[in-house]
């Protein structure tokens, strides 16, 4: 569906001016329909941001409670297109915290998550193209990535995330990369905007601001003792769990309480190697995550999906300070914390 381009009628027909020039914006205006639909959010981020959103192409690989929240938000916001990748067939586990798929086996049986979610999301906003793409993103040709401005991955191994992140980084155009994972009542978002420049709002106008992001691989390689004091315990817990999943060849959500002894052993190894006191990675936290297994605490999904939605909107529109580079939420203490994990020397 081609975006309707609004050729502005010549308002100057009667050439009655008061010496004031009209500044033409890119020659493209929002349609009356878009202005009416997006009225309330244009009042938040402005017309220019809305125009940029309407041109943005988003890819989401992995559909779960958190990423469908993100999909909903970004479709409502009015992006240009959203492409979904997840060939898994619908299972009970895949349904939890997912409001895009009716709990009706006759509807979902034999169909992939991306197909079903795609159908529902189309309804949310007829002005956004929502597509389902088959295949495994990590195996996609490099050129495939060029179609997108933003890539969001979830539900896959650390190795896959790193590979996809690297592919995004190798393209000539800047492709924003986000990885998001929820475990029990905790969640993590990783952001890589590579080199990002935006107009930062100050009390006295705006100033150009440059941010330099690390890739996921480089960020998690930073020695733990070099990190700022008081880094969220979740940062370390997520590293231990994801490393364990990688060594076992399992995906997020595929661990259980039985794995606790092995996970604790890995915690000790990692902490020893990094000279970090094990108390920074509490056993209770690891246990909580393992016990939950594939189960998510549902109210955490809209919180993580909402923060990720806001971040992607910020990155596309160039409005607002983007998050750098990890975000954590834990329903247990209710804190939503930003952690900047970057090499002190590389800043």
């Amino acid at each position: 569906m081609a975006k309707p381009i609004y050729a502005r009628a010549v308002a100057d027909r009667l050439s009655l001016r008061e010496g004031r020039l009209r500044i033409k914006m890119d020659g493209e205006e929002l349609t009356a329909q878009e202005t009416a639909l997006y009225d309330r959010q244009i009042r938040v981020w402005g017309v220019d941001a809305q125009k940029r959103l309407s041109k943005a192409q988003i890819l989401v690989s992995g559909l779960n409670g958190t990423s469908v929240e993100f999909c909903k938000n970004i479709v409502l916001a009015g992006v240009g297109s959203l492409t979904l990748m997840d060939d898994r067939l619908v299972t009970e586990d895949a349904l939890q915290a997912n409001f895009l798929i009716p709990r009706d086996e006759t509807v979902y049986s034999g169909r992939s998550l991306s197909e079903l979610c795609c159908e529902s999301l189309r309804d949310f906003n007829p002005m956004v193209r929502v597509l389902a793409e088959k295949g495994d993103l990590a195996q996609c040709e490099m050129e495939f990535f060029d179609k997108f401005d933003v890539v969001v991955v979830t539900g896959c191994s650390l190795k896959t995330k790193i590979e996809i992140n690297e592919k995004c980084r190798k393209r000539a155009k800047r492709i924003a990369f986000y990885a998001i994972e929820c475990r029990d009542s905790c969640g993590e978002i990783f952001v890589d905007l590579q080199n990002y420049t935006y107009a930062q709002k100050k009390s006295d106008g705006t100033a150009e601001c440059h941010l330099s992001y690390l890739s996921l691989e480089d960020a998690i390689l930073i020695p733990w003792r070099n990190l700022p004091r008081k880094v969220s315990k979740l940062y370390f817990a997520m590293r231990v769990i994801e490393k364990f999943e990688l060594s076992e060849g399992r995906n997020p959500g595929e661990l259980s309480n039985c794995d606790l002894p092995a996970v604790l052993k890995l915690r000790k190894e990692l902490c020893d190697a990094q000279s970090l006191n094990e108390s920074h990675v509490p056993e209770t936290l690891l246990e909580r995550i393992l016990v939950a297994g594939p189960m998510l605490y549902p109210p955490v999904c809209p919180i993580l999906g909402g923060i990720l939605g806001q971040e992607v909107i910020k990155a596309i529109s160039g409005k607002g300070d983007p998050l750098k580079n990890f975000f954590y939420f834990d329903a247990a203490d209710g804190k939503g914390v930003v952690e900047d994990i970057s090499n002190p020397s590389s800043i």
Binding site: Q41, R43, A77, P299, P302, G306, I307, G309, Q310, G334
Partner: peptide
Amino acid sequence: LFDAKGIAGNIVHAVATTNAIIAGLIVI
């Protein structure tokens, strides 16, 4: 007119993401 309408109609600024986050917090 867009701004005048906002002032005259006391139109609230609203986005989906904030509402989603707040709803999650309410349930917690």
